[in-house]
Simulated assay, not measured.
Amino acid sequence: MITEPTFYAAAIPAVTLYGLSKGGFSGVAILSMPLLSLVISPVAAAAIVLPVLMVQDVVTVWSYRRTWDGKVLAYLAPGALAGIATGYAFASVVAEPAVRIIVGLIAVVFCLDRWLRPGAATAPPRPHNLMSATLLGWISGYTSFVIHVGGPPFNMYAMPRGLKRDVFVGTAALFFAAINLIKVGPFIALGQMTLDNLATAAVLFPVAILSNLAGIWLVRRLPATAFYAIIYALTFVVGAVLLIGGVRALL
C-alpha cells in the first residue's frame, strides 16, 4: 500500500473530482488521471482508480435506480463491449495521444455544432440510430479502458435523445458501472490489480463516497436547463484538454 503523503496530496483531490463526475457532472474528472500521474505511473494510477470508480458506481446506481433509459443502454452496449475488447487486445501498443486527439476533436465539434447551428438548442429529440450508437459506444468503451475518459462519447449519443436530467444521470451511471465491472477481468489479466493497489484504493473509499454524494446532492438541486448547459460546457472543456494534450504529446 502506498503511504507517501505526496501521493495522497494528489489522490484526494483526484478522487473528489471523480466523485463529482459520478454524481452527475460528467467530465469534471478530466484532471484526475493527470494529477495521479504526477506522483505514480499511469498504469498504477489506472489500477488504483478502477476500484474507486466501482465503489462510486454503487452509490450513483443506487441513488438513480428508478431513473434510467433502457433503450440508450441497449443501443450503446454492443459497441461498448467491442471497445473494451479492443482496448484490452491493443493495450501494449495503444497510441494514447492519437486516442486523445480523436475523442477531443469529436467532442469539440459536437459542442460547437450545438452552440453555433441555428435551432440546435430547440431541436426535437433525435431518434435512436444504431450506426452512431455503435460507433460512439465503441469509442466510449475503448477510451474508458485506455485512459478512463469514456464520458464525452456517451454524452454525444445520450444528450440529443432528450432525456430528463435524472434519467440522463441514471443511464450514465448504469452504463459506466457495467463498463467498469467488465474491465476488472482484463485489468487482472494485464497484471494491474495487485493487493497493494487494492489496499491503496480502499484507503480512498471514504473520500470517494462523500464526494459522490456531494455531486448527487448538487445535481438534484440544479434546474434541468442549467444542468445540461454545464454538461455541454464540461464536454467541450474535456474535449479541448484531450485535443491539446494529444497534439502536444505527438509534437
Rank of each mutant, 00 (worst) to 15 (best):
V94D: 00
T200E: 08
K22P: 02
S140W: 06
V167N: 12
I244T: 15
G150M: 12
S92A: 15
L243S: 05
L112F: 15
V109T: 01
T86C: 13
V237W: 09
I209R: 12
A133D: 02
T3I: 14
L251M: 13
I244M: 13
A133G: 02
H128N: 12
P206Q: 08
L105A: 15
R117V: 08
A201I: 11
A74H: 05
L20C: 04
W138S: 13
G185D: 02
G246R: 07
V207N: 13
M1N: 00
R117T: 15
A123T: 09
S41L: 04
L198K: 10
F145D: 01
P153C: 03
G83Y: 05
D196S: 15
T194S: 15
L190M: 14
L198G: 07
D57Q: 11
H148M: 09
I40K: 00
D57S: 12
G239H: 12
S21W: 11
L36D: 00
V61L: 12
F25H: 11
A82V: 15
G170H: 08
P13I: 06
S132Y: 04
A177R: 03
P42C: 09
W138I: 12
V94H: 02
Y88W: 14
I188Y: 14
V207M: 11
R117N: 05
P51G: 12
G141A: 05
F7H: 14
A95H: 13
V99E: 05
F154P: 01
P118L: 06
P124A: 14
I182F: 15
R65Y: 04
Y75V: 02
L36W: 10
L234Q: 13
